[in-house]
Structures are given as C-alpha cells and as structure tokens.
Design a protein around this nucleic acid. Structure first.
Length: 154
DNA sequence: GCCAACGTTGGC
DNA sequence: GCCAACGTTGGC
C-alpha cells in the first residue's frame, strides 16, 4: 500500500465536503498536470491512503485522511463544456485526464500546518517542502508516520 | 528540440 | 494583491 497527498482549495472542495458527500466519496476531478496525472493513472491503487491538504486558504496544511476506493478512470469533466476543467484537446478516443475515487476516513485530531511540516527536520522527502506546485504527490511511509504523529501532539 | 514568453499555482 | 517558482506553449 502506498501513501499520497492531494491538495485542494477548501473554498472549492474541503474535507468537510468530502465527509458529507454521498457515501463520503468523490471523484478527484480536475487534475490538469501531467506529473500528477501520471501518478493517478499509473501508481495510485485501490486501498492507498491519502492525506487531504488544504491550500490557498487561511489554515494551510494536512487536515485529514481519505482512502482510494477506485483506481484511475476517465475524468468526465474534460469533455464537459460547462466545466472549468473542460479540455478542448481531449477526445473520447484519446482522453487526457483521469480521476480516482477517494473515500473519507477521518479528520486529523489537529491540523498539521505547512509551517510545521517545513520546520520538522524529520520530514525529508515530501514535495511540499520543495515549494513545488504539484497537486498530487507521493508521501513516504516515514513522512506519513511523522505527520500522523504531529497531528496527535498537543 | 531549444528556449523565451506566457499562464498558473499557491504561500505570504 | 504580490510575486516567485514552475509548467506549458509556440516560434524558430
């Protein structure tokens, strides 16, 4: 089983939206970055765990955990003229983008802020620390465990 | 295939 | 709202 981190802007879709969604599940739509797409298409498997990370907001950081409940399939929003994620260059013959389904697991007891992650030298590998803009990124088991640990500290 | 220009992300 | 960092586009 592998670990991941998905960014979302809580004004658009927050962890609370995931928790209250039908079956506490959503398709993670709108990823329009090839590196992130390749992770979703090739590497993210059913049963993998995902940190939900709130970006571009007041309270930036990891807020909870979700599970991948369906591996990659075609992102329907790429064909939807009314969607912000519409891509004129994607066709049903040659779709460009995929989604996975994620299901809510739990909120972290305490949000782990980006500031604290950056300040923690025990966290070494995560792309968040490198200022990257990747919206879907792998997390090592060591970093996963450390962030979980941080969420339980007072 | 290079690389300059442009657009987007996302923290501050 | 600013702007740095990065990804994408398009002319050559």
């Amino acid at each position: 089983m592998a670990y991941w981190l998905f960014k979302t802007e809580p004004d658009a879709f927050s962890i609370d939206d995931l928790k209250t969604a039908p079956k506490q599940t959503t398709l993670w739509e709108g990823v329009r970055n090839y590196q992130a797409r390749n992770f979703m298409r090739d590497d993210i498997k059913q049963g993998d765990l995902v940190f939900i990370y709130h970006s571009s907001c007041k309270q930036i950081g990891v807020v909870g955990v979700a599970m991948v409940t369906q591996q990659a399939y075609c992102d329907p929003t790429q064909f939807d003229l009314n969607s912000d994620y519409y891509d004129a260059k994607a066709t049903s013959d040659k779709p460009r983008w995929v989604v996975v389904d994620v299901t809510y697991q739990y909120h972290l007891k305490k949000r782990v802020s980006l500031k604290d992650i950056k300040a923690n030298n025990a966290i070494t590998d995560i792309a968040l620390k490198k200022g990257g803009r990747l919206s879907v990124m792998p997390v090592t088991k060591a970093d996963w465990d450390e962030i979980i640990k941080m969420s339980m500290r007072e």
